[in-house]
């Protein structure tokens, strides 16, 4: 296992990358990105057995699908800093002719991305197809996904959740980023989804809760436990409680920073809270 302090400083650099990316083009989604930083760092630096030389089919390796594509800044930063493409390319985020589109896409051939996402609710279905392909290929590696909690309001998710439970797709670990926020306010006020654990369980899933989704040790612990639950006839769900905007005090715990970029002053404050660790791009 990697040194926890090293992973924490990796995460700090990713947070810098996130705010710098969105500040430069005055657009993008920092809130959810910051909230999922520890999750993605844990996944790519500790949990998944993956190959940054990147092959689309991903046979013989663990693969990941980002369903809530708007948190592309954290995805791009973690991919780049895990060796999928040069970190300098983060400076092209959302710019014309860039491989780093506003929402992730395979269209420009960016290594590490296996499906376009952005229009919400589609990632789990794609992941289930990939999971079934792994079974056909007798490939015992796993498929990981990430979804926003608000994203679960999209009906397609429940088609997929029903399919996975009914068919015992037990080589998938789907994590839900439970930050309780969405564009129009809290998830409870916009469209209350009730007890997500009970819902997933009712659809035949094995559900784990990780209460401290921004504590990288706890995230790693939770995901390692989730891996132990695979291969037992049920799909595995991790309900990961996070704080939107985590690590930048004025962005924390509010939906206000879902899709808003910091100004120069705010950037300075955000960077001061997250000192350079691996070198800025």
């Amino acid at each position: 296992m990697a040194n926890i302090e090293e992973l924490k400083s990796f995460a700090t650099q990713v947070r810098r990358d996130i705010v710098r990316q969105v500040h430069k083009v005055n657009s993008g989604h920092p809130g959810g990105s910051l909230g999922c930083t520890e999750f993605l760092v844990a996944l790519y630096q500790e949990i998944m057995d993956h190959d940054p030389s990147f092959n689309m089919d991903g046979i013989g390796e663990d693969i990941f699908f980002l369903s809530n594509g708007h948190i592309s800044p954290v995805f791009y930063s973690v991919l780049a800093r895990s060796g999928y493409f040069p970190v300098e390319e983060l400076g092209t985020f959302r710019m014309i002719n860039s491989r780093l589109q506003g929402h992730p896409t395979t269209h420009e051939g960016l290594p590490g991305v296996r499906i376009a996402s952005g229009s919400l609710g589609q990632g789990m279905s794609v992941a289930l197809g990939a999971a079934q392909a792994k079974k056909l290929n007798k490939d015992h590696k796993l498929v990981f996904t990430l979804h926003g909690d608000g994203e679960l309001q999209e009906g397609q998710n429940w088609e997929a959740i029903m399919y996975a439970g009914a068919n015992g797709v037990d080589n998938i670990i789907s994590t839900v980023d439970v930050n309780g926020q969405q564009i129009d306010g809290s998830t409870d006020t916009v469209l209350n989804m009730g007890d997500l654990k009970a819902k997933f369980e009712a659809f035949g899933w094995d559900v784990l809760k990780v209460a401290e989704g921004n504590d990288i040790e706890k995230v790693i612990e939770g995901l390692k436990e989730a891996k132990q639950h695979t291969g037992k006839g049920k799909p595995v769900c991790v309900l990961l409680t996070t704080v939107m905007g985590n690590g930048v005090d004025f962005m924390m715990g509010t939906h206000e920073w879902h899709g808003k970029a910091p100004n120069d002053e705010q950037l300075e404050s955000a960077l001061a809270q997250n000192p350079e660790t691996l070198g800025d791009y």
């Binding site: 589609q122 794609v126 289930l128 197809g129 990939a130 079934q132 392909a133 997929a160």
Partner: peptide, 8 residues
């Protein structure tokens, strides 16, 4: 969606 995933 599953069809798209099966190509991977």
């Amino acid at each position: 969606g599953m069809a798209a995933g099966l190509t991977i």
